[in-house]
C-alpha cells in the first residue's frame, strides 16, 4: 500500500498548482481549468481517506464508502459548475469582448 503521505503530498501539490494558476493566469478559461485541478485534488483526498478508513478497520468489517460517494458527488457538481462557469464566460465575452480576468473589474465599490 502506498503510504498516506505520498497521497497527501500529491494532492497538496495538485492543489497548489491549481491555486497558483487561479491567482496568476489571466485567461478565464485557464482559471476555470485550474479550479478544476483544485477540486480534483480535494477529490483525491476524499477517495484516499475513504479507502484508508476501510483498510484500518478491516477487522471490524467497518467499511465506509461515503468518501467515495462524496467524490462522485463532487465530480458531478464540478461538471455542473463548469457548465455554468463557461456560460458566464461566454456572456462576459459577448459583453466585453474579452475574458481576461484583470480587465473585468467593474465589480468594485
Amino acid at each position: 500500500m502506498i503510504p498516506i503521505e505520498y497521497w497527501l503530498v500529491f494532492s497538496s501539490l495538485l492543489f497548489c498548482i491549481g491555486a497558483y494558476g487561479v491567482l496568476t493566469k489571466r485567461n478565464a478559461i485557464v482559471v476555470l481549468m485550474c479550479i478544476e485541478i483544485m477540486l480534483n485534488s480535494a477529490n483525491i483526498n476524499l477517495v484516499m481517506f475513504s479507502s484508508y478508513h476501510s483498510v484500518l478497520h478491516i477487522d471490524a468489517m467497518d467499511t465506509d464508502p461515503s468518501g467515495q460517494a462524496f467524490a462522485l458527488f463532487s465530480i458531478a457538481i464540478a461538471a455542473a459548475e463548469v457548465a455554468v462557469g463557461l456560460a458566464i464566460l461566454l456572456s462576459v465575452y459577448r459583453q466585453y469582448k474579452t475574458i481576461e480576468v484583470d480587465k473585468i473589474n467593474i465589480l468594485r465599490w
Binding site: A19, V22, L23, T24, V31, V101, D102, I104, N105, I106, L107, R108, W109
Partner: peptide
C-alpha cells in the same frame, strides 16, 4: 475601506489564500 475592493477577482482569491 473601499480601495480594497479592486474588482480584480484574482486579487480577492489571493487574499482568501
Amino acid at each position: 475601506m473601499r480601495t480594497v475592493q479592486t474588482g480584480n477577482v484574482q486579487r480577492y482569491a489571493g487574499l482568501v489564500v
